[in-house]
Simulated scan of single mutants.
Amino acid sequence: MTGLPVLDDAYIPELPNYYKGKVRDNYDLADGGRVIIATDRLSAFDRILTAIPYKGRVLTQTARHWFELTADICPNHVISYPHPNVVIGKRLEILPVEIVVRGYLAGTTSTSILTKYKAGERTMYGVTLPDGMRDNERLPEAIITPTTKAFDGGHDEPLSGAEILSQKLLTEEQWNTVSSYALKLFACGQERAAAQGLILADTKYEFGVDAEGTIILADEIHTPDSSRYWIAETYQAALESGKRPASFDKDFIRAWVAERCDPYKDEIPAIPAELVEQASKVYIDAFEMITGKSFDRETGGVTLADIRESLKHLF
């Protein structure tokens, strides 16, 4: 243990309709609201590796920063923040398409445009990219690279706008609306990030519909877990040398585990406290750089008892 406070579980038996996600614990309320408690659990390889102090608070408060900044662009699910780790949001039917917006030729996963580009593909997600682009080069304009949303542990699959419509995943009106929202949100994110000395290279958005059919932004927005940020001053030299720009490197715990076992099959070895503390610092530094605010470790407390107290009005 690190000696720093961690929230690794947020089960509150007095709250109804409990659902435990990989990172967030959720409760559906009778009035149509949903309580979402961000724990400090770190998920990778389809399992929980450890808990990172303050991680849940960083993600909740970073998303809050952006939800408030972008409320005039797109309606979001937020009703209230009774605690720094907790958002009460409007319960939505999540749309079956994940909206990924990319401003740069970057990424490492099988669905990333850089992976596809290096394999020789030029037309992807309904977009054709020019020949001769370098790794991590800025795209001529931001593009949407949607994927199917795998709800049951499956893998996301690339989609084009035409496929979304032909498969009836979204109506034409829904597709046009989420596309417009996503590009406007991303433009705002890039502009604000640039003012903080950062490049918002790509991000993902999750949208849902309420009972009236209104499209609403859900989940999180422009957090270090949902977005790729680069340190702007490192970008040009990295581009010219073919290296990745400096970023908020949160993957060293994942790499440490992968070097020592098969994380999909073996027991996970005990992760050293210094690595956990290092990861916590990365998250806090990311919050402060992204938002330009000082991170508040104290307000509201971090224990489950603190959170339970903040939600007593719901019992």
Rank of each mutant, 00 (worst) to 15 (best):
V58N: 00
Y104P: 05
F248C: 05
D25P: 03
I215M: 07
A162V: 13
N26F: 14
I37L: 04
Y104F: 09
A258M: 11
P75G: 09
W66H: 05
A38S: 09
P75T: 08
L129D: 08
F186H: 01
G120C: 06
D28R: 14
S80P: 12
Q167M: 12
F45Y: 00
W175F: 11
D8E: 13
E220M: 04
S226C: 08
S160G: 09
R228T: 01
G213V: 02
Y19W: 15
E206H: 03
I284V: 09
R192N: 10
T50K: 01
I307S: 02
R228H: 08
D9G: 15
D72W: 12
E173W: 14
A44V: 05
L105V: 05
P272C: 02
G107S: 11
I216Y: 04
G32R: 08
Q236R: 13
H65I: 01
T203F: 03
F252P: 06
G197N: 07
V100C: 01
E14I: 12
L59N: 01
V97Y: 00
P263R: 02
L165H: 02
R122P: 07
G301K: 02
L185I: 04
R192F: 10
Y264S: 12
K90I: 11
I73D: 02
I144T: 01
I88V: 10
E277H: 13
K116V: 08
V127D: 07
I268E: 04
G21H: 05
A246K: 12
T39V: 02
R244N: 15
P272F: 01
V127E: 07
R308G: 10
R34P: 06
R102K: 08
D285L: 10
L92G: 03
G197F: 06
T223R: 00
H77E: 06
Q190E: 10
P130Y: 01
K90D: 09
H222E: 03
G292I: 10
D9K: 15
I144N: 01
L69K: 15
V97P: 00
D152Y: 15
I113Y: 05
V276M: 05
G107R: 06
L105M: 07
I231Y: 11
T148F: 03
E206W: 02
K116M: 11
L4Y: 08
E172I: 14
M133F: 11
V257P: 01
V86L: 05
P140T: 01
F315D: 15
E157T: 13
D296A: 07
S179L: 11
P13D: 14
R41H: 06
L95I: 04
V127H: 09
T147M: 06
I52R: 01
V302H: 14
A255Q: 15
H65N: 06
D156R: 04
